[in-house]
Computed example of a mutant assay.
Amino acid sequence: MPRPKDAFDGIYPCEFYTPEELLDRDQMYTIREIARLLQGLDPEADVDEGTEAVLVDWAVPWVMVNAADLVIGEPPTDEDPGYYGLRTDGDD
């Protein structure tokens, strides 16, 4: 159910990192690692399963919106996750 804005103690701009601000240009990241980075956490931070699910829910749309600025690495095996990185001039 919608709530009036004045029902909140504070409201803030909805701003997200750009890929250039978030990702190291020489590294590739899983969705779970990107999710942590979007929250200002270390990509290897230990978070509980419920929190991780929420973080991933935010990270997937971020990857989709920023797809033009990203590259995808082939997973090492069929069981491994995909990896995403910052698109650079030398990437095809």
Rank of each mutant, 00 (worst) to 15 (best):
L23Y: 14
E74T: 12
G10A: 12
D57W: 01
V54I: 14
E52N: 07
D69M: 08
D46H: 13
V60C: 03
Q27L: 07
Y83F: 14
G85W: 05
P19M: 04
P76G: 04
P13W: 12
D42H: 13
T51E: 10
Y83E: 09
I34D: 08
I72S: 09
G90I: 12
R32L: 03
L86E: 02
Q39A: 14
I34T: 12
T30N: 14
Y84L: 05
D42P: 05
G40V: 01
W58G: 00
K5P: 00
A53C: 03
D26F: 01
A53E: 12
L22N: 06
T51K: 09
L41P: 07
P81R: 10
A53I: 06
P2F: 03
D69F: 10
P2H: 05
L70V: 10
V56L: 13
R32E: 15
G90L: 11
I11A: 03
M1I: 09
D69I: 02
E44H: 07
L41V: 00
P76Q: 12
D91L: 08
I72M: 14
T77M: 15
Q39T: 03
L41Q: 08
A59G: 11
D92V: 11
E20A: 14
G73F: 04
D24N: 12
G73W: 09
L23A: 04
D42Y: 01
D69K: 15
P43N: 12
A7E: 14
E15Q: 15
D80Q: 07
G90V: 09
Q27S: 06
E49V: 12
G85A: 05
G50Y: 13
R36M: 07
G90Y: 11
M1A: 13
I31H: 03
V65G: 07
R3S: 10
E52A: 04
V65T: 13
Y12F: 04
R36K: 15
D6E: 15
Y83N: 03
I72G: 00
A59I: 01
D57S: 07
L37R: 14
T77L: 14
I34E: 10
L38R: 08
D80L: 04
D78C: 02
E33K: 07
T18Q: 04
E21F: 04
I72V: 14
E44Q: 12
I11V: 11
T18N: 02
D48I: 00
V71E: 00
L37C: 06
T88P: 07
V65I: 14
R36L: 12
V56Y: 00
K5C: 01
V65M: 11
L23H: 12
D6P: 10
D9P: 02
L38I: 06
L37A: 03
G73L: 09
Y83Q: 11
P81C: 09
D6W: 10
T88H: 10
G50Q: 12
G50P: 06
D24I: 05
P13H: 11
V54K: 15
D57G: 08
R25P: 08
P75H: 13
G40W: 06
F8Q: 02
L70C: 12
P19A: 02
V54R: 15
L38P: 05
T88L: 10
Y17W: 11
T51Y: 05
D69A: 14
